[in-house]
Nucleic acid binder design. Structure first.
Lengths: 227, 227
DNA sequence: AAGCTAATGACAGTCACTGACAATCGACAA
DNA sequence: TTGTCGATTGTCAGTGACTGTCATTAGCTT
């Protein structure tokens, strides 16, 4: 449809585009994802059929399944990117940093820069709305928790390596990461329950909760606390 | 089929049975559950169809869905009982006990007495085998994690009430419970990964892990640790 | 322009699950 | 014992997610 560019076959030049075929695929995928999220957030996840999504993008339902493992996959795709973004932040942490400090800094940092990593595909606002849909749709919440568990395993291995430990011999990496993940889940959960919609809000909540874990575990809850 | 008992209508006498109809229902349910677990643990969850389960008990597939919300429900039914058993143990704890202490004692105690609560329906061995199937089947693991999350919410409210706190105002109950749940999940996970099959093993692992959480959070992993 | 390969659409089939209706079986009273 | 009533069940039809297969199409290569 476009005029054939002179660099038609130069798909492997240093900086340029990956060829029409690839671009088309990318566009289809993005369109499917955006339509899916749009429908999920407006009609609800359960009330949206794959046929609807496919129709909105004008492809066959079969094609949808060639791009996504299933409805769930599409619904969690963006969150998946966010997790990858976080893992990347974590990897970038200096190795001297103690593990939990690294985790803490990595989350806060990744929430600060999440827009950059996501906006390319879907608007932030859609991302945030989808987050609530996940939290309020049983099947999605389940799938989400499982994915988080997988990511935690990955992180545990990462930190163990960093500290020169064997994950299977020393339970501390998995324990620490599991605890950290638990705190983050309480955080995002409360955030999605509250009516606030900001990215800053979740950042603050995360910091506050991480500060509270220690005290919360001492068990002396008669001491005053802040929300 | 039986001779009509003289106490036919006396279904409400102090100790006696709940009437033929109820007994029959109970038997059907138990049979369905046992067949389901048996098939799940031998063929695998995904490779077992509802039709198969129903056929094994000689009822229509439709009937299966009258007793269970779905395949998942049947697969997680026993674990659900175990969780209820734990919550019951927790409720029975003296109110002066600090929350985390109560949690710790309740798990250990409930693992000690789990057989009593479960054996009535399915053999312990089947229960343990099913645990591994759950851990190794993505869909089931997801559903399992979601249920655990629900139970955690319930426990958080319980502890908050015990301590005279408002769960929505003070994050500590949810945080503490989430952390506790995380530790328990690491525990059961490692237990199901190892080849050991004992109930004592999981008890010891739980105790060991709970002792390790504190140290694991300090972040100074250069200190020696035991597996 | 022709040939190759990857992406797509069309189609048939499986399986989980649901609603509706008719047949059946236990509970209870006459 | 018999008959009515309500609960349990089986049958059937339908929806929706997902998969395998195969023919068609469309970008890429020479």
């Amino acid at each position: 449809m476009r005029t054939a560019e002179t660099a038609g076959k130069a798909s492997r030049t240093l900086s340029s585009r990956p060829g029409l075929r690839e671009r088309k695929k990318q566009r289809t995928r993005d369109a499917l994802l955006r339509s899916a999220l749009e429908l999920f957030t407006t009609q609800g996840y359960e009330r949206t059929t794959v046929d609807e999504i496919a129709e909105a993008v004008d492809v066959s339902p079969r094609t949808f399944f060639r791009y996504f493992g299933g409805k769930e996959d599409a619904a969690l795709a963006v969150h998946g990117m966010a997790e990858e973004h976080f893992v990347a932040s974590l990897r970038a942490r200096p190795p001297e940093e103690p593990p939990l400090e690294a985790l803490r800094r990595a989350v806060l940092e990744s929430w600060d820069t999440i827009s950059d990593a996501v906006v390319a595909v879907v608007p932030v606002e859609l991302f945030l709305r989808m987050f609530r849909v996940i939290e309020s749709t049983p099947v999605l919440l389940a799938a989400y928790l499982r994915r988080s568990a997988e990511t935690e395993e990955q992180i545990a291995r990462l930190l163990a390596e960093r500290e020169g430990l064997d994950v299977d011999a020393d339970p501390r990496p998995r324990l620490a990461v599991a605890v950290f993940g638990a705190v983050m889940r309480v955080t995002t959960r409360q955030w999605s329950a509250d009516e606030n919609g900001g990215l800053e809000a979740i950042r603050e909540l995360a910091a506050a909760h991480l500060d509270q874990v220690g005290p919360a575990l001492t068990g002396n809850w008669r001491t005053p606390a802040r929300s």
